[in-house]
Amino acid sequence: HFTSQQLQELEATFQRNRYPDMSTREEIAVWTNLTEARVRVWFKNRRAKWR
């Protein structure tokens, strides 16, 4: 589960860029205190939901 702060950060990034690269995902991981893998999976799932 994600905190509302984490989701806000993830959503804001998603609005700007639906396909963040590795370095962007790592930055998000640092800001949100999540692993890069969790961030990558979140984006994958979010893109699926967005379609």
Rank of each mutant, 00 (worst) to 15 (best):
T3L: 04
F2T: 02
N45D: 10
A48C: 10
R16T: 10
K44T: 08
F43E: 00
R46L: 02
T35M: 03
V41H: 12
W31F: 14
A12W: 12
W42L: 02
S23D: 08
W42D: 00
R18L: 05
Q8H: 11
R40L: 07
W42N: 00
R51Y: 11
R25I: 14
V39L: 03
R47C: 03
E9K: 15
F43Q: 00
M22D: 04
E9M: 15
R46C: 03
R47I: 06
T3C: 07
R16S: 09
Q8Y: 10
T35N: 06
W50L: 11
N17F: 06
Q6D: 00
F43K: 00
R46M: 06
T13E: 14
A29I: 04
K44V: 11
T35F: 03
A37H: 11
T35R: 02
R51A: 10
R16Y: 09
H1V: 10
L10R: 00
L10I: 02
V39N: 00
T24P: 02
T32W: 07
L7M: 08
Q15I: 08
R38P: 01
T32Q: 06
Q6W: 05
R46N: 02
A37P: 11
P20G: 02
N45L: 13
A29Q: 01
R46F: 02
W42M: 00
Y19K: 04
I28K: 01
A12E: 11
H1I: 11
T32D: 01
L7E: 09
E26W: 10
D21T: 08
E9P: 02
F43M: 03
A48L: 09
F14R: 04
E9T: 15
R40E: 07
Y19R: 05
M22E: 08
T32N: 07
K49H: 10
R25P: 01
N17E: 06
R40T: 06
R25K: 00
M22L: 14
Q15V: 07
D21P: 07
A12P: 01
Q6M: 06
N33R: 07
T32Y: 08
Q8D: 10
A29F: 02
R47T: 03
V41M: 14
F14P: 01
R38I: 15
N33T: 05
N33L: 06
Q5S: 10
R18D: 02
R25S: 01
R38S: 13
R47G: 02
Y19I: 04
W50D: 13
Y19W: 11
R46Y: 03
K44S: 09
R18C: 11
E11N: 04
T24K: 09
N17C: 14
Q15M: 09
T3D: 06
V39I: 08
N17Y: 06
R40Y: 07
V30P: 00
Q15D: 07
F2N: 02
W50R: 07
Q6S: 04
K49F: 08
R40W: 05
F2D: 02
Q8I: 12
V41N: 13
Q8P: 01
Q6E: 04
P20I: 03
A37Y: 14
A37G: 07
S23R: 14
M22I: 10
W50H: 08
R16F: 08
V30W: 09
E27G: 07
R18E: 05
T35Y: 03
R18K: 14
Q15N: 08
Q6F: 15
Q5W: 15
R25D: 02
V41E: 15
N17W: 07
R16K: 13
T13Q: 15
L34D: 02
V41F: 12
A12K: 13
R47S: 02
A29V: 01
R51T: 07
H1M: 10
T32P: 02
L34G: 04
L34H: 03
V30R: 15
N45P: 00
Q5F: 14
A48W: 07
W50F: 10
R16C: 14
S23A: 14
V39T: 00
Q15K: 10
Q15L: 11
P20N: 02
R40D: 09
S23M: 11
N45K: 13
R18G: 04
R25N: 01
R38K: 12
K44D: 07
P20M: 02
R16H: 11
R25H: 01
E9G: 08
S4K: 13
E11H: 02
R40G: 05
N33M: 07
R25F: 07
L34N: 06
F14K: 03
F2M: 10
A48R: 13
